[in-house]
């Protein structure tokens, strides 16, 4: 029977919300519309004001508390409970995640400090020795995952930073380049100006050298604008198949050679000389990496051999 009565108590509770719904009515909904909009994510809406018919049996609660609580003289080590009266208890804003979590953290930290002080004064071992291994709440594989995530996060941050840096460097380089170009243009302009000035001066002073246009007899106006310097460079040119002997005055006392050369030159001028063959036949990186022909020939050869 008693059990049944308990059951009905619960049923009563379940019926209650519907009653409330009727009580609240349309006006109540309209009032709380804005609120629920704001707190839709939290899924937590409070009634704007306290319900008047809510049960609050303080005496009953205190009675129950007396019934259920442990005897007063239970030592602290059994309960391990700490009350933390932190100073910054001034109504933490619930929706401010950081502030809320910080308040929890500080509460736990202060509580732990107090508790550790008490434990230490008892002289019992309470800190885990470094060689005490036992089952943990989270498995090793899970912790591995956690670690992986941390590392990935760290890497991501680093990469982002690097990208940022590169972007900035690029920007800077652009600026520097622009500046340089500007400077160069300026220099050019200045030089042209200087030349003009100088020319004018010369014109005014009446051509001391007597040239036709008043220009300098510049070096490159004698028909051979770009001649190689007469110096021979040491070593062998890439296309030279004679091993550099040709350059070291190969035709020494050989008349035929000279003659041939002349003939060659004439022919080249007549038919055109397409450049040295040697440079074309040399291996380059591409040709060495290209193994197509080689493979084919090899495989075909093997087949033949087998047959």
């Amino acid at each position: 029977m008693a059990v049944n009565r308990r059951g009905t108590g619960v049923f009563d509770e379940d019926d209650m919300p519907e009653d409330e719904m009727n009580d609240v009515g349309d006006e109540g909904y309209d009032d709380s519309e804005s609120e629920s909009d704001a707190e839709e994510e939290e899924e937590d809406v409070k009634l704007p004001e306290a319900k008047k018919n809510a049960v609050f049996d303080r005496d009953g609660i205190m009675d129950k508390l007396g019934d259920m609580s442990w005897p007063q003289d239970v030592p602290w080590i059994q309960r391990l409970a700490v009350d933390v009266d932190s100073q910054q208890e001034q109504e933490v804003d619930v929706n401010d995640d950081l502030a809320r979590e910080l308040s929890f953290y500080t509460q736990a930290l202060e509580g732990t400090r107090e508790a550790f002080g008490k434990l230490q004064s008892m002289g019992l071992p309470f800190l885990r020795p470094s060689d005490y291994y036992a089952e943990m709440v989270k498995t090793d594989s899970h912790m591995e995952k956690v670690k992986g995530r941390l590392l990935a996060e760290k890497r991501q941050i680093e990469e982002a930073e690097e990208r940022k840096k590169a972007r900035e460097a690029k920007k800077l380089a652009k600026e520097v380049q622009a500046q340089k170009q500007k400077e160069r243009a300026k220099q050019k302009k200045g030089e042209i100006e200087a030349v003009k000035k100088w020319r004018k001066q010369r014109q005014q002073s009446g051509f001391p050298e007597g040239d036709k246009d008043g220009d300098l007899p510049l070096d490159f106006e004698d028909g051979r604008p770009f001649q190689k310097s007469g110096k021979k460079r040491p070593g062998v040119a890439p296309g030279d198949r004679s091993g550099g002997k040709l350059r070291q005055g190969g035709g020494k006392g050989r008349k035929g050679m000279d003659k041939n050369m002349k003939k060659r030159e004439k022919r080249d001028s007549k038919f055109g000389f397409g450049g040295r063959k040697g440079a074309k036949k040399q291996n380059s990186a591409e040709t060495t990496n290209d193994l197509r022909g080689l493979k084919q020939s090899n495989s075909s050869g093997n087949k033949k051999r087998k047959r």
Binding site: R5, R6, G9, E13, K46, L47, A50, F56, D57, I61
Partner: peptide, 13 residues
């Protein structure tokens, strides 16, 4: 799991 109600949250929805 039942019995007389001692407290009821007046703000609960």
């Amino acid at each position: 799991f039942g019995g007389p109600t001692l407290y009821e949250n007046p703000f609960y929805v």
